[in-house]
Design a protein around this nucleic acid. Structure first.
Lengths: 391, 391
DNA sequence: TCCCATTTGTCAAGGACATAGACAAATTGC
DNA sequence: GCAATTTGTCTATGTCCTTGACAAATGGGA
């Protein structure tokens, strides 16, 4: 009788959520306008905004001016009220950034990966975060979340990395758990190519597309799939593992098991082997090969063309299975316009409805961007999400 | 001031939804137990149940007995309060059924498809529905929804059928619109293989699996994909159109454009051609071919084995792209255990993580089941769903 | 300069919905 | 027959939202 505990938090949550979303969508806005846009009453908006301001989520930012009538106080999101970390773990480099509630990058850095792997990486991440937080003028205790992109196949339930050939010792520990315990905040681990797809979805070519695929071509190959607007992970987290596509070789050859038939046919090693096979002698790296191509060398052209042909067939297969509207390419090979143009040439000859092909908007920052996108989305959910009780 | 209009329907909607879900999940149940399970107060449950009973959604059904304390009145869903129609349109047969809110079939029938196609089919559907409603002891006006499964590629937004080679004149009209106007209730049009996948998801092998594919093998081939627990349609509704997979032939051969490379290689026509090529002479239909196989004929065995090999490669490709936990096969060829056993033999030799393979639980009723599953789900959503206003 | 239309934001009253606790009614078991 | 138990209603109370009135603030024109 003294005081009821929490009777109907749901109605206020819904209102709060509506207010926050409106402010996110409209930037600096007055309470009167929020009321008009949400359809809620002025009174309710005033109450909700007061609470949000008291808790630091909104801040008054100015006044309307120049129109008849009393000036309104305008409010906007206090972006610094929520900060999160995105880390892209690569075999040679680690990129990391801190972003705020609006997705603004407030600090970013890049270092060499500790070659000892395993727990040493956790230490490295931890140091990196402290350093970034300091650069952002805040404490590590203000961070709410870490999103970590890593190569390898991840168990979607636990975030445990099952196969990560290029990072030593990382499949031996439960990276998500260990790292989360160390930092004291939630850690989300996601495949780096999946993150790249999310990055394009968030602020890249996929921003208006609910069905697309991000295809990474480099030393290895991989794919991130956005279908119905959300990321596809598959039953064991191995969706998009196109290394194993039965294209470019004999799938019944047991050699394809370990390396993957398609990866063996279009990875950088295969491309260079192909170049040598065609008589090329002036390239020991993929960059060299493309330089040779641009210098007019026919063996380089042949190597690129054959690779493009196989990639086009793979995209045709993906198109038949998933019907994407768009395929975004990235990675050291996939980001080369020379290759992509060749793919564009082959595609209409092997599939009746070729998807559009674009090169990643973010280059090698795509995964980092995706991590930030997920972090922002997750922060919004945690802070303002309306969760209905499951019965 | 006279009376407020509809201030906070959301709280009551949430409570109502919780009650309905609890009754669905638990069957015959007392108000006191609903209160315990939902965590809502007895008072609220009594109010909500009274409203639901007044509107005909719940009905009292008995009393508890044998335990100490006052006996409780138990309630259950009034299944007949919502009826819907599922229709599976095939090139030769139309199957149709009426089901109630709980998914019970209350009337079912099967007739030959009107060969004139087009508008004649709408007439046929309409007559069929009146007849079924009468058999179910109700009027057609009690029906809330029709789900229609059809071959062909459907525009996910409009439900318009773009390509349906086996049904004449059906791509010339907006079937969903015309049929819906005729019946005066919403019509959902969905690809038949997608519906089959939904059927397995609802009450078949996919009931506990969030990531699986239904592969239909017969005169044509097709696939329905359930990923993250929901159906994948793709950008143009063509997800799962594995007829065009670059497997079993040269994808750069323009002939594959119209028929589809994979379909040309494993459809029933290809299978019979292959049988003849191996010297077989005793089969003019696929059923004959399997009979010949079971009689020990080697050319039949060879034809089946080669088909199984190609299907296994296709499943490997699908596995690489989607990582399903399970592949369910159906269709006149895909439902044959002889073929599926052969596929199971090939699969581990061409992919490192072969998915489980099962034959459809419902045979040629899978699409009809899927339509009922969608209808039931949609009725629940319409009747008791909690929709938050989008800002 | 003054007044008026316009807009903002608060106040006050009232309704819908939920909760908690008291209590009557119904039932079993000793 | 009585105690224990369970059901379901009644009463009181609190939160949240809405509506309409109203004060405060502002620009524009007479």
């Amino acid at each position: 009788m003294t005081s009821s505990v929490a009777q109907t938090p749901i109605a206020r949550k819904i209102s709060t959520n509506a207010v926050i979303r409106t402010v996110f969508a409209n930037g600096s806005i007055s309470r009167a306008d929020i009321a008009k846009l949400t359809g809620l009453s002025k009174q309710t908006i005033s109450d909700v905004v007061r609470d949000l301001e008291d808790d630091g989520w909104l801040k008054p930012v100015g006044q309307t001016d120049g129109r008849p009538g009393r000036n309104a106080i305008t409010y906007e999101i206090n972006a610094r009220a929520g900060l999160a970390v995105s880390i892209d773990l690569g075999s040679t480099k680690i990129a990391a950034a801190i972003c705020d509630l609006l997705g603004n990058v407030v600090a970013e850095t890049k270092v060499s990966t500790d070659p000892r792997g395993g727990m040493h990486l956790v230490n490295q991440f931890s140091d990196l975060i402290v350093e970034l937080a300091s650069a952002a003028g805040t404490g590590a205790d203000k961070l709410r979340l870490v999103v970590l992109g890593s190569p390898g196949v991840l168990d979607p339930a636990t975030g445990h990395i099952n196969v990560a050939p290029s990072i030593p010792g990382i499949d031996a520990i439960n990276l998500r758990q260990v790292f989360s315990d160390r930092m004291g905040i939630p850690v989300i681990v996601e495949n780096d190519v999946n993150l790249a797809a999310q990055g394009e979805r968030w602020r890249g070519h996929g921003i208006e597309t609910n069905n697309f695929a991000f295809v990474a071509l480099g030393t290895g190959v991989g794919m991130g799939i956005i279908a119905n607007g959300t990321l596809l992970r598959g039953a064991r987290g191995a969706a998009g593992e196109i290394a194993y596509l039965p294209i470019g070789g004999d799938v019944f050859d047991p050699g394809g098991f370990t390396l993957g038939t398609f990866e063996s046919a279009v990875g950088s090693v295969a491309m260079l082997r192909r170049y040598v096979g065609f008589g090329g002698r002036n390239a020991s790296t993929v960059a060299d090969l493309f330089a040779a191509f641009n210098a007019g060398e026919t063996s380089a052209a042949a190597a690129i063309e054959e690779t493009a042909r196989l990639v086009a067939v793979a995209i045709a297969a993906i198109g038949a299975a998933l019907d994407p509207e768009l395929v975004i390419t990235g990675g050291s090979i996939g980001a080369r316009p020379e290759l992509v143009n060749a793919i564009r040439g082959f595609l209409p000859r092997c599939t009746p409805y070729p998807p559009r092909i674009e090169i990643s908007r973010f280059g090698n920052r795509a995964a980092l961007m995706g991590g930030m996108g997920i972090a922002v989305e997750r922060m919004h959910d945690d802070l303002f999400g309306v969760k209905l009780r499951e019965v």
